[in-house]
Nucleic acid binder design. Sequence first.
DNA 1: CATCGGCACACT
DNA 2: GAGTGTGCC
Length: 705
Amino acid sequence: MPSLLYFIVEQRKQPDLRGLPTAVVQYNAWKGGALIAVSYEARKYGVKRSMRGAESKQVCPQIQLVQVPVARGKADLSTYRNAGSEVVSILSRKGRCERASIDEVYLDLTDAAETMLAEAPPEILEVIDEEALKSHVLGLNSEDGSDAKESVRKWLCRNDADRRDKLLACGAFIVAELRLQVLKETEFTCSAGIAHNKILAKLASGMNKPAQQTVVPFSSVKVLLDSLPIKKMKQLGGKLGDSLQSDLGVNTVGDLLQFSEEKLQERYGINTGTWLWNIARGISGDEVEGRLLPKSHGSGKTFPGPQALKTIASVQHWLHELCEELSERLQLDLDQNKRIAHTLVLHATAYKVSDSDSHKKFPSKSCPLRYGTAKIQEDALSLFQAALREYLGSYTAKMQGSQNNHWGITSLSVSASKIVPIPSGTASITKYFHGHPSCSSTKQSQNNLIEEATPVPPSGNESYSEVNVTKPQIEFPGEETMIKYAETSSDQLEDKIDLLNDQNPCCSSTNQACDEFTQETVLVSTSGNEHCSGMNQSQPMKNYSGEESCVTLSMPSFNRQEQKRKAVKDKRTCSILRFFKNQDPSCAPQKLEHVENTEDVKAPPLSPGIQSRSNNCLDQNRSELPKERPPEDAGDSNVCGSFQIEHRRGGAWSYNIDEIDPSVIDELPPEIQQEVRAWIRPHKRHNTVKRGSSIAHYFLPTKNT
DNA sequence: CATCGGCACACT
DNA sequence: GAGTGTGCC
């Protein structure tokens, strides 16, 4: 956990730590605990994460070690989570915001940048924000002798710049302001990257730390990537990056350019291959998701070495602690965000003393999640026992309770996933999630039903004997929810939207008493053609005047057939359409029948790469609705022609997706936004390349050249 | 044994 | 859809 956030949070608690070499450590007992965050001052002394506390004292005797809070015998990260939420609530003011991790956020500032460019472009500003002037602009030849700030100012305010760079400049101003805002309101500092897509923004954000921002002009992308070590790219820091280096001899991102998309797909599968081909060119269609809340909650702990758990009783004890924390967080999520988790998952790792198949993994198990701490504890234990039996296989060590010589548990974790917003009119429903005893009074007759739906009622047959009262309410989250929305009065609807505009509902009730100082990462992508950081800048963007359809720059637009193709899919769509219908009569579908034509949609005769690139580039043409893929962009002209992806349509899809005003989408509750965007975006393709059962296969040498 | 605990996502 | 594995912070 390299997160500096942890450090800053602690610094905020103890201001006198500022300027001192400091590290955050958890569990002081064994060798001084593990370092999980190290201040820059401490780094100068050679202190690294991966060191133990005692070790760090050796290289830096004066280091200040601060401990992670402990609750229920385990690390409690809630203060850090809350700190992240504080920042998110500020950053989400200016655009779509994705909370990528506890200390990382992506923003889509396209709209804000467009607006600024139209209404108050940098060139007319009289006073230039000092913070913006401190930006690092990649590729800006700071001609010796000239002041860095002055050249940044010139770049930011250049009148004759490419429009894409103008948007980035606006983004730089907006980000500078946001960072100041964060500092003012939370005392945390943050770094940021400003670029045309997420992966480049992410890359840039790490280039000048701490507390600085870096811009990647469109024209600098190629130079930047050419010599960039491959493993610096997000997602390539692990085995995939290793494989690129050792198997393909790719050491820099630029080295990737020599491989055809097909070649990369051959080796790494369709999706990864295409993804690699694209990022080599600075292209990424990865969208900023508009999600301020986590998709799952988990609580876990490791029991290394001699601490391994060897009795059911000890496992039960720790599961109780973990489940208690999880339950508490679920309850908070429910109260604050009106969301319900549907699935409980148990993970563990174990060792088994040498026996035949002794390095089998301890299996994960899941079951429907029932609210209430006691129920969660009970279910988690049942899951554990089921997994343990499977793990131990044939020989069932009967010895429970007392020491056993056969196995030991070295880690335990419980998590809750499939979290969806509560349908609506929550008041009467939510009480059932507060662990009310009333839950248990349900009919036996339904037990079978539940048990059937629940694959793992391990030992205790009573584990699942209680019917989950909430079930009927949440069984069809997608459809039900949408319908509820559709039926909601406009008042309630506004509530939903308020929730969204409220910035961060999840921290509304949390601390604003802030006094300190922090470091966090802000990643920003902006610009209309955000996905298109292709190398080929020779082609100026076409112009357009958006009237044609209700396309806004905040969303990629595709041609109509394309949209139709993507829109099909699940029945959930149907309910969403209803939502739209009620929302905006002007876009109302005439009929809601939808067609099951997704299956016959044999992939059109073009590669996914082409598909992706096309999509990316359409952005440039926005309202033009090109009939064919524009030749510009990615240099590789062999990809053109393919745009009729869609001619596969055929079906009787009766809803004109084009008629949905995309700007409306931004105003929907986040979960709906997500779903709606999902249709409009290209979907991942199934990997048709058969290669064996594991993805590790991709990393193995292949016969075909 | 001992980089912890935690997320997200791809793949089968 | 459940379970595994990877990768990041």
